[in-house]
């Protein structure tokens, strides 16, 4: 039977880039540090095909300042959750859709698009989720800089004070 430490050891032997980047905070949990898109895509097929993490419970987004974080919760038959993390800069928030390998991630990936502004390449066409129709473009409410106080649900417009707007514009420049 594989256990958490043995899984980590096998992965580190296979991928030196994972050295010191995998942790076991408690039984049934393996957590990685954030990997770049290239690193993530290099590791994932092996984790899925060879290590038995063929089920995906979830992918959640996080705001990491200049970057967006994506935490994939993968599960094997022993019920171990492997939190494999990927990040992408907010200026170019592109990740690949995993809904082909893990169909259970489709709605969650749509959420990354609507709530965080991620660009999920290869995500099948479908209705946006979960924001309502008429939601203003370019508004990603789960990003830390988005403040609900400036959002008017009646007109569906986001109206930050001029100062905030200027700062945001400077940042994106």
């Amino acid at each position: 039977m594989q256990n958490e430490e043995a899984i980590i050891q096998q992965l580190v032997e296979k991928f030196s880039l994972l050295k010191d980047k995998l942790h076991v905070p408690r039984a049934k949990r393996i957590v990685s540090d954030f990997l770049t898109r290239e690193e993530f895509e290099q590791v994932l097929p092996y984790v899925r095909e060879e290590m038995g993490f063929y089920r995906a419970s979830h992918v959640l987004g996080t705001d990491e300042g200049e970057d967006l974080g994506f935490i994939y919760l993968l599960t094997n038959d022993e019920g171990i959750i492997f939190a494999l993390k990927e990040k992408a800069p907010k200026s170019n928030p592109k990740i690949s859709s995993l809904s082909g390998e893990y169909p259970s991630l489709e709605f969650h990936e749509r959420e990354l698009v609507s709530l965080f502004g991620a660009e999920v390449e290869g995500l099948p066409k479908g209705p946006p989720y979960p924001l309502p129709d008429g939601w203003p473009e370019g508004n990603y409410p789960m990003r830390k800089e988005w403040n609900q106080e400036y959002f008017d649900p009646h007109t569906m417009t986001y109206n930050p004070p001029a100062e905030t707007q200027k700062k945001e514009a400077e940042k994106s420049d």
Binding site: F107, G126, P127, P128, Y129, P130, L131, P132, P141, M142, K144, Q148
Partner: peptide, 17 residues
Amino acid sequence: AVIGIGYNHRGIEKACE
């Protein structure tokens, strides 16, 4: 079949922050 959900989304996660 196309499944359309999201009608009950009211932003609990943002509220938690």
